[in-house]
Design a binder for these strands. Structure first.
Lengths: 325, 325
DNA sequence: ACTTTATCTGTAACCGGTTACACATAGAGG
DNA sequence: CCTCTATGTGTAACCGGTTACAGATAAAGT
């Protein structure tokens, strides 16, 4: 490994001088700078971030904690975060928590141990005490909180919108799929939908589910039609479940959207590719990731007047699983 | 931040002793150990990985470079890698390269600067010189190479299998979708299919595509049916494109699999949820990730007799877009 | 001509760990 | 009783950077 000492020797100066040209601070003579630059190029030197991080007590690393990168909503978030951060020179330490407290704690500890300058987390245990003890900039993503800056889309609004849409389009016997209880945003959109449904002039029923995974989605879809065979409007807990429901509906010979309308949530990329294309409530995942990263960077740089919370707009995307009016 | 010195003071011993109990090496008296443990618990101390990494010249970090986490094939790989690594106490530094050389170089440099102990890369520029200069354990994932250990599935075999399947099931005018030229595995499976098709007794044509993205997939599908409206068997370049083609076929009133059979590649989770469910050539992505991580760990630990290359089996998954015989 | 100030550079301390080495003590073996 | 070895602990150097501080020189101000 070539170190700053090697460069110093090659350039015939001290390490302090090399460090000055590297960081472009302090006084350095023009020709000295040139010699150093040449030595750096000659030796193909690049500074050891670990040493720098140790002295400065901060790295250029940022910790990103997601529930599960395998769920297609999260790669979008992650990508938004990464694009924004990498443009600003930060790098990503990634963890999947599976909504498991122990894993979450482990990753948080890793982040701290590695001197990350900030953390972005999309998990549900933010009220756990380890976060309190943390004196690091923290931004919640896809989660809201009183105590920390956060970027999220309005779940209640989304739920409201989904329900309104189905009602407006004439659904009479709506089935609402309730997402996992321990996932906050799932509950928000559920409550939003309930709010709208309870005051509207329609029948509705609720199907409780406990996961978002691909493996289980089909099971929920089957259960739904077994329990509520004559439903004519379904609000899915997310697009994965929505697509599974569309699939199962067709399998059972139902016409979409004539017999049954289905509305998803998230607008993951594959919703555009499903058949028929899935109507859904869009969350701007990629942009949410970017905003979270921006917010974190501003917090890190201690810029004044940084917003505590950014609520992203939720939007109805009408495709082919809802009627044309 | 609480440091080893604080612990030493609290326990009334030297930092060396604390370090010895932390690492469980050297001699430490039983009661001294107890005092130190108590101090650690008392102060809620956890060692600074950065300092450790600096002295030892190695961290517990591993760099993972992927083309694009947003493509649903890669989260599977990433998750496999992560699960295996985190069980072994390693953590992940993640980068998306977009198959862009500059980004790739930047990330490799970051990895080196952060003292990663190994790198797993799923990109196409492995022959670029920066990898040669690297004296770090390196494992290729979803890519083959003469020069580095690699974990990949047999693309040629997969292509062969896809073509054989369609032929056996009676397709007469097959369209082969050729993936992006710069993506190696895409070319392997393309060549495998060509190999089979050329010697079989069927007509076939080729549609060249230049991306795998969701945005473009539908465009390819439209182009395909515009150019080859009477094709009755399609080998898609991957599942995303495959699903888009299924979608477009239905849109154009074709019956699947009666009028046209379609076979995808990868077996991403959503292929099971498409309608009709997509027949495809499965690559065991999650397991590939795990194997790559295992291989890397063994290389890092310098275990003897580590295989250079692991070729994972490719498998036909028959679902509803191919005929029952 | 003398002080002041700006510019340039090097020495050494420091970040928080790990470990080589020295030293002390105690029990074992002769 | 004396040596030898095993055990236990502390001191200080070290990893590769950054930066406070000091010293040197030259230009500017009076």
């Amino acid at each position: 490994m070539v170190t700053i000492k090697d460069v110093a020797r090659e350039a015939g100066v001290s390490v302090a001088t090399v460090s000055r040209v590297l960081n472009d601070n302090g006084y350095v003579g023009a020709d000295t700078r040139k010699k150093v630059m040449e030595a750096i190029a000659e030796l193909n030197y690049s500074p050891n971030e670990v040493a720098r991080s140790l002295y400065k007590r901060e790295s250029r690393l940022i910790g990103l904690l997601l529930p599960d990168i395998t769920n297609p909503f999260f790669p979008q978030l992650a990508r938004g975060v990464e694009d924004e951060l990498s443009e600003a020179g930060y790098r990503l330490l990634l963890g999947n928590s599976d909504e498991n407290i122990q894993k979450e704690l482990d990753y948080i500890q890793t982040f701290v141990q590695n001197n990350v300058v900030g953390i972005i987390t999309a998990t549900n245990h933010v009220d756990y005490k380890i976060y309190e003890a943390l004196d690091l900039p923290l931004v919640l993503l896809d989660r809201a909180s009183e105590n920390y800056p956060a970027v999220y889309a309005d779940g209640r609004e989304g739920g409201l919108l989904a329900a309104k849409t189905l009602i407006k389009k004439g659904a009479q016997r709506i089935t609402l799929v309730k997402g996992p209880t321990n996932i906050k945003p799932a509950q928000d959109r559920y409550k939003g939908a309930i709010e709208e449904l309870s005051q509207a002039d329609v029948d509705f029923s609720v199907l409780s589910t406990t996961s978002y995974s691909f493996e289980d989605a089909q099971g929920w879809a089957e259960e739904l039609f077994d329990k509520f065979p004559d439903t004519d409007g379904i609000i899915a807990s997310n697009d994965i479940v929505g697509i599974a429901i569309v699939h199962e509906a067709l399998e059972r010979g139902k016409r979409i959207p004539e017999d049954v309308q289905i509305i998803g949530y998230d607008d993951i990329p594959q919703s555009r590719l499903s058949y028929p294309t899935l109507s859904t409530i869009r969350q701007p995942a990629y942009e949410m990731g970017r905003e979270a990263a921006k917010l974190l960077i501003r917090t890190i740089k201690k810029e004044p007047g940084v917003e505590q919370t950014i609520q992203m707009p939720v939007e109805l995307v009408e495709r082919k699983t809802t009627r044309k009016e």
